[in-house]
């Protein structure tokens, strides 16, 4: 049997094949991510190139020829004549980039602190976990807004738009590391008392080597599950912040920014400007979340 066939036959992929929800979610996520990655190739227009915009195309409903230019748009256009489908593709790039980066940041921070707290114990643990507790008492969105506000206050005006994305990543990442830290600490406490860790201590391995080479690989399963679910939350957090106007700037609109812009036209009848970005956000967040749920069950030996 080839390695590929063996992997296909493994319990993990078997449980994947047997779960229609997981398969559909996976396909949705892959489609959306690919669409975002290859946006410049797929998108009919470049929403950031003013030269291709025609104000006459403004407010074209979906799949209907424009009264003046005769052009047809899959999902209609917004007030400035931008193709909604294209803005969604580009917006998803921002949303996904922020989401992935924020989770990566939270993961590195949380896993490191969680490992340290669990393995070292004592004061290290007390300090890290108390900070985590305090942070948990604030809603994540509030923490993110606070960090966002501070960052905005200290960056010079001319860099603000450029910095906005990075500040978003920092803000969401900082509000999200606690989950990683808590779970990793718990898992570390269990693993560090197992005999294979004692055996490694016995031969004089350093704490760093034990944490990285022995404990980390054994807590990665739970980290993977949280990372997936966090990704959905981070995408929503980004959308929320952008919707509130403290996130991605209109020059680099994310899905949340698009929803904020579209919201203004809801009552004047141009529903598509709000509808399509919202549906995309919903599909993205929901599939990532469902995938995370399935992953948690699949990696939990007790439920198998």
């Amino acid at each position: 049997m080839t390695a590929l066939a063996r992997a296909w036959d493994s319990d993990f992929l078997y449980s994947f094949r047997r779960s229609p929800v997981a398969v559909v979610s996976f396909l949705v996520v892959v489609t959306l991510v690919l669409a975002a990655l290859f946006a410049p190739l797929i998108a009919p227009h470049d929403p950031f190139d003013p030269a291709t915009l025609n104000l006459m195309n403004g407010f074209t409903p979906p799949m209907t020829p424009n009264a003046f230019t005769g052009e047809t748009f899959l999902m209609g256009t917004d007030d400035q004549g931008r193709d909604v489908f294209s803005t969604i593709l580009y917006g998803m790039r921002i949303s996904l980039f922020v989401g992935f980066s924020a989770v990566l940041f939270a993961l590195i921070l949380g896993v490191t602190l969680g490992l340290l707290a669990g393995y070292r114990g004592g004061w290290t643990e007390t300090v890290i976990m108390r900070v985590a507790d305090v942070q948990l008492t604030f809603p994540a969105i509030l923490v993110a807004m606070l960090i966002f506000g501070i960052a905005k206050g200290i960056t010079p005006v001319e860099y603000r738009d450029q910095m906005a994305i990075w500040v978003l990543i920092l803000a969401i990442g900082l509000s999200d590391w606690v989950q990683f830290a808590r779970v990793v600490r718990g898992a570390t406490l269990v693993e560090k008392n197992r005999e294979y860790v004692q055996a490694a201590r016995l031969i004089g391995r350093s704490s760093g080597a034990i944490m990285m080479r022995h404990i980390l690989p054994n807590v990665l399963n739970s980290v993977l599950v949280i990372a997936t679910i966090s990704l959905a939350l981070a995408i929503i957090a980004e959308a929320t912040l952008s919707f509130l106007g403290v996130g991605a700037p209109p020059t680099q609109p994310s899905l949340g920014t698009l929803i904020r812009i579209g919201q203004g036209f809801l009552f004047s009848g141009e529903w598509w400007i709000l509808f399509f970005p919202s549906v995309t956000l919903l599909a993205l967040a929901l599939s990532v979340n469902l995938l995370g749920d399935w992953l948690r069950d699949a990696l939990n030996p007790r439920l198998r």
Binding site: E195, A199, L202
Partner: peptide
Amino acid sequence: IEKVRSDIQMIFQDPYASLNPRW
């Protein structure tokens, strides 16, 4: 210390917990 440490080894009770499952 190094010399003595390499002269001592231990075998544990639970053969399922004493081998790192990922190695």
